[in-house]
Nucleic acid binder design. Sequence first.
DNA 1: TAGTTGTGAGTAAGCACTCACCCACGCAGA
DNA 2: TCTGCGTGGGTGAGTGCTTACTCACAACTA
Lengths: 228, 228
Amino acid sequence: MTSDLRRQLILGAAKRCFARHGYAGTTTKSVAAAAAISEALLFKHFPSKAALFADILTEECEADPGLADLREREPSTATLVELTRRMVQHFVQIASIPNEEEAQRLRLMVTSHLDDGEFAQLIYAKIKTLFAPLFIASLERAIAVGDAARIGSDPLNLFWFAHHTVLTMAMTRLPAIPCLSYGNTNNLERELCEFLLRGLGLHDAAIASHLDQESSADAGEKVIAEGA
Amino acid sequence: MTSDLRRQLILGAAKRCFARHGYAGTTTKSVAAAAAISEALLFKHFPSKAALFADILTEECEADPGLADLREREPSTATLVELTRRMVQHFVQIASIPNEEEAQRLRLMVTSHLDDGEFAQLIYAKIKTLFAPLFIASLERAIAVGDAARIGSDPLNLFWFAHHTVLTMAMTRLPAIPCLSYGNTNNLERELCEFLLRGLGLHDAAIASHLDQESSADAGEKVIAEGA
DNA sequence: TAGTTGTGAGTAAGCACTCACCCACGCAGA
DNA sequence: TCTGCGTGGGTGAGTGCTTACTCACAACTA
């Protein structure tokens, strides 16, 4: 077993533990057990529990949130709808298909808000640089072509409001017994998209036409992350 | 010092500790210190750390979320707008004015989502019985009088979507250094209200007229809780 | 033989929780 | 009025166990 591979195995096991039980609730013993090694070996690879946790957060920060295909699109109403749809899809999927990796990211993200918020701040900054420009340009474009109403709000705030809605939705579905039941998952996705796009100022006609035409266009594509 | 008063003092101190550091991160020693008593006395009042935590959650569950005045209103567009406005106001205030008590509730609520979600489930159930009926009736009424579009979504889901948006917004402002900056607080309140009401299907004219007329009507009223 | 991967058996500190005991107060009996 | 004593709020100094972390040493490979 090479040192690098072992390190990755430990990081994976630790991520699962920290995401599930939080920093204080996780013991180095349990991480070692999850990685099927001795505690002593764990401390050969990481100088301390805190350093191990910090490394996990750093790795999560640097992870590619994907959606590269989307980022190369031209700003348009269709792009705005697709951005929203993919974000909603991503967060809905965290709970509905067994997406352990993404559930962990969400847990770490939420935990950070209860702590100093540093990790969350970094993730938000990353999402912002990757997606906000295209989102805002698309919204502007939608307004220009008459698909959306011009409203007084800061478009960046609107971007975050949409993100907030789906984040909490996903959060309510983290426990084994979800805190809320929204009914059918397909409906949920659609209802969320419509709610958010209406909130952004899109006209009902534009929403309906774009959601209908795109609803199954690239359903099989991989949606990796909006940052949590 | 009577036993009952001491018990309340311990509960208050413990609530602060648990909200700030989570269950695993809180030590009985630190709770005792926060309550300015010995650990031994703490265990005279509560049989275990777990029981103390359970009592805190029970107490928080039973707390009156207030807004009784609102619950007695007639269903109408105005009521819908006011419900939304007060909810938004409540969550904005958690961060903007030093509202330690409500910040603690939010922390406990969020923590529960990362755990088994039981506490969150109870709070959601309480919010639902208290506010959802009036919310839904008001939305129906708004549609009937032409203030809102009839949309396919389950109105209860819409209710939760609105709640989700402001919950995460408040969450981002829990850390000493907020994870996100939304600019001016007054604008934030207004932007959130408009975003949510548009999302519910209200027409811009109805939103504008109702938000403008009510914007400072009862600004001084106490907004206690939407449950988190 | 030298270096790397790996571990069992520790260590000191910290944890939830307990116990013997202090002290102030109320009150019955001499 | 004093004395003795029960009662309830309160604590210092523990208990055994768990924690993060260490170290001497084994096993394997180059």
